[in-house]
């Protein structure tokens, strides 16, 4: 699988470097294939317009058969009803609805769109409990997805 894994990630890397979508930028000094940082910029007209966020992607050997681990990192975590203050993200395609036909780029676009459609800036109601108990990787969390509309 190593060859397959490498080939797929190289294609994704090239695509992101060559034609990044608006608001998505791969960190310049990306040297490791198994861990990337991607900068998102909140879309114009949204509550997050012009704000910068950093996403960390980690890819296991089974990528793309298994989802990457994706978290927000750094000092600026977007305050959003589906994003916890420790950077963990409650989004079904990152866990139980991951499809190997999705990509880093499609995840970034889903997250930007999730930010754009948010009506208010607030943490999830169970943020304190979750952050206190959360384990290191959000992929170890057993998520329940209640509402896709926020």
């Amino acid at each position: 699988m190593a060859g397959r894994f490498t080939r797929r990630l190289q294609k994704e890397l090239l695509d992101l470097q060559r034609s990044p979508p608006t608001g998505v930028k791969l960190e310049d000094n990306t040297t490791r294939l198994d861990q990337w940082r991607i900068h998102l910029t909140g879309a114009d007209g949204s509550l997050y317009a012009g704000e910068h966020f950093v996403l960390r992607f980690r890819f296991g050997n089974n990528y793309p058969m298994e989802a990457p681990e994706v978290v927000f990192e750094g000092p600026n975590i977007p305050m959003h009803g589906h994003i916890y203050s420790n950077g963990h993200i409650c989004l079904n395609v990152l866990y139980n609805e991951w499809s190997p036909a999705l990509s880093v780029q499609s995840i970034c676009l889903s997250l930007l769109s999730m930010l754009s459609s948010s009506p208010e800036k607030s943490w999830p109601p169970d943020n304190d409990t979750y952050v206190r108990r959360a384990i290191a990787s959000p992929k170890q969390t057993s998520w329940a997805f209640h509402d896709d509309t926020v």
Partner: peptide, 13 residues
């Protein structure tokens, strides 16, 4: 509003 539920290590294990 979003909400989430999560289980303990032993369930996942």
């Amino acid at each position: 509003m979003a909400s989430s539920a999560y289980s303990d290590f032993d369930v996942i294990a």
